[in-house]
């Protein structure tokens, strides 16, 4: 077991964004996390990465309790993420963007030179073909997403959280992205992905977790979740399109 969330809850004022959530993730899995807008998916990611501290519950990662650990410590323990609203370091070169991950992640590059060498490999891996000296702010959305992923991968994570990484991509870019995610899994990275593209999620995930209004409403294989009446009602019913 890689990650265990027990009775996790988080409220904002009176709003219960995540309620008593229990999820277990095995090493090597691809987990799809779905749910309508405002279901609490991003909040759950923020709890796992430590951006938010839960009001109640426990988080265990690789047999250590990390419920109160701060985000940088969790990154060093092997949890990496991308952001729903892509957040590369805009005024830094692509090389520096990714080198940050090489220096501060789970593995620590011993020098700037080593960090830059690994950063170049990561940029290749995610398919960025721009000059590494270009600033991240000058890239297209797709390339910014790629750079952000390269930065996350550069931290050498065990667990990678992708928050709508495929949103805004055209169909051929989506296919490419799915291929990349599969390839990352073969390298031993466990992945939780949030996507509104239900078909893509069902295609690629080993297991799917569905959330609505902060609660887990279904969990199982893609076909189990796809046929779950609660999911059909909450997610596929009135709010089919998503973003």
């Amino acid at each position: 077991m890689l990650l265990k969330l027990e009775n996790l809850s988080k409220s904002f004022g009176g709003l219960k964004a995540v309620r008593e959530l229990n999820v277990t993730v095995e090493a090597g899995e691809i987990i799809g996390l779905i749910g309508p807008n405002g279901a609490g998916k991003t909040t759950l990611f923020n709890l796992i990465t430590g951006t938010y501290k839960p009001d109640a519950g426990r988080i265990t990662f690789r047999d250590h309790e990390i419920t109160r650990h701060n985000p940088s410590s969790r990154c060093k323990q092997g949890i990496a993420r991308t952001f729903q609203h892509v957040r590369p370091f805009h005024h830094l070169s692509l090389l520096d963007n990714v080198a940050v991950g090489c220096v501060y992640g789970r593995q620590t590059a011993r020098s700037r030179g080593e960090a830059e060498r690994i950063a170049r490999e990561m940029l290749q891996l995610v398919g960025v073909h721009e000059s590494p000296q270009v600033h991240a702010g000058e890239l297209t959305l797709m390339n910014r997403k790629r750079v952000e992923l390269a930065r996350a991968l550069a931290t050498q994570p065990y667990l990678l959280l992708l928050d709508e990484w495929m949103a805004g991509l055209n169909p051929s870019e989506q296919r490419e992205a799915l291929g990349l995610i599969r390839r990352l899994r073969t390298q031993g990275i466990t992945i939780i992905l949030v996507e509104h593209l239900v078909k893509a999620v069902f295609d690629i995930s080993d297991r799917v977790v569905a959330m609505d209004a902060g609660e887990k409403i279904a969990e199982g294989t893609p076909s189990q979740v796809a046929n779950d009446p609660k999911v059909i009602e909450a997610y596929l019913g009135p709010d089919m399109g998503g973003e």
Binding site: N70, P71, C75, A80, R87, F89, A99, V100, Y104, T155
Partner: peptide, 21 residues
């Protein structure tokens, strides 16, 4: 290497933290 951390913090504290800074 420290400079990378400083620049990352200048650019985006939350993203820097998520990257281990």
């Amino acid at each position: 290497r420290w400079m990378l951390g400083w620049l990352a913090i200048r650019e985006d504290e939350e993203a820097a933290q998520a990257t281990g800074v």
